[in-house]
């Protein structure tokens, strides 16, 4: 019998059963605390030993963070709701099929069963230089290994690079931004609500964080408003493989139409920048318009006007352009 090596470094485990207890622990341990939800991102980090937290706070026992229920003006989703629940919940599939489809596209059946919506939103980037534990900008160093003449950067960003060129990996984040969701963030002493769009951070704002969450804070629930329920929508994820893979690019869009014209729209692309990118210029160009080829050409160009591809990812520019055009042309009701 061979020697069994513990893959993970030991840590001190806390298993609160109430939200207040969890917030107390996060406040007490600050940046030493690692928040464990479904574990899909966590165990990758811990087994590689690229992150070695001394304290792990497991949220699995906190029932306040679970559940999905309709509210007066929309739907409330606990951050610990599993991706399978989000993909199959009747209130979501009937009123917000955009969100259900985005959750359905994540990874594999096993991972959706175990992974949570909150985890899918808060997961760290997949840049392999960063995840291998290299001391890059995002890890507190002073170099980006993914943006050198010999770097492998086919999967990296084409928009809004700022030293770091990593991308946001989430499939559900663009959907929630398109649906104008709001995130509830709690800490021991405070509660705040931020728009989904403002929940994510690019490297220009903070190069070491993907979200606005600070040590001691927790994403507790996601609220999707009634406003975009039942409107026409589009979601598409392009990846090298149908299952498992993270997106090379994805798009989530929702449209309000009247008399054949687009009255209002929200469009967000993912996996092409460090945060999911809402395309406000495209949305503005669509308002009041009826869809024809020249409009599609025009907004397709608008969508990628600020693209700055790296050595190996120029394809993401045309991919993004085409996804945005397809979203407008092929939106479903």
């Amino acid at each position: 019998m061979g020697v069994v090596r513990d893959m993970m470094k030991p840590f001190e485990l806390f298993q609160p059963t109430e939200l207040d207890g969890a917030l107390d622990l996060l406040s007490r341990h600050g940046s030493d605390a690692w928040i464990l939800s479904g574990g899909m991102d966590t165990f990758d980090w811990l087994k590689d030993r690229a992150k070695q937290p001394s304290v792990v706070v497991d949220l699995g026992g906190v029932s306040e963070l679970k559940g999905i229920e309709g509210t007066e003006d929309g739907i409330r989703i606990g951050a610990m709701a599993s991706l399978t629940e989000v993909a199959t919940h009747p209130e979501i599939t009937s009123r917000y099929p955009l969100l259900a489809e985005s959750a359905e596209k994540v990874a594999t059946p096993q991972i959706r069963q175990q992974g949570t919506l909150g985890g899918n939103l808060c997961q760290d980037t997949r840049c392999w230089y960063y995840r291998s534990g290299w001391p890059c900008y995002r890890a507190g160093g002073n170099i980006c290994y993914a943006n050198t003449p010999t770097a492998l950067n086919r999967e990296h960003c084409v928009f809004e690079a700022n030293r770091c060129v990593a991308v946001s990996p989430s499939d559900t984040a663009p959907a929630l931004i398109a649906l104008d969701a709001r995130m509830t963030i709690r800490s021991r002493r405070s509660e705040r609500t931020v728009e989904a769009e403002d929940f994510f951070l690019g490297p220009a704002t903070d190069i070491t964080r993907m979200t606005v969450l600070r040590p001691g804070e927790l994403l507790t629930e996601i609220h999707v408003p009634q406003r975009w329920a039942g409107q026409s929508y589009y979601f598409e994820k392009v990846a090298d493989r149908k299952a498992w893979d993270f997106a090379l690019a994805n798009v989530a869009a929702t449209f309000q139409r009247q008399n054949g014209r687009i009255q209002d729209a929200r469009i967000c692309v993912g996996a092409v920048a460090a945060k999911p990118l809402r395309l406000r210029n495209v949305e503005a160009a669509l308002r009041g318009q009826s869809v024809d080829n020249s409009l599609l050409e025009q907004v397709g160009e608008l969508a990628v006007r600020n693209a700055r591809p790296l050595r190996q990812n120029e394809y993401k520019v045309s991919l993004t352009r085409n996804l945005v055009k397809r979203a407008i042309r092929d939106a479903r009701t």
Binding site: M40, T42, F43, K47, P109, Q110, I111, Q113, Q114, W244
Partner: peptide, 21 residues
Amino acid sequence: DKGDCGACTVLLNGEPRLSCI
């Protein structure tokens, strides 16, 4: 051992889950 291959799949309350993560 990282949730990429599925060889560790077991059933938890009847649902397939990745026991390695």
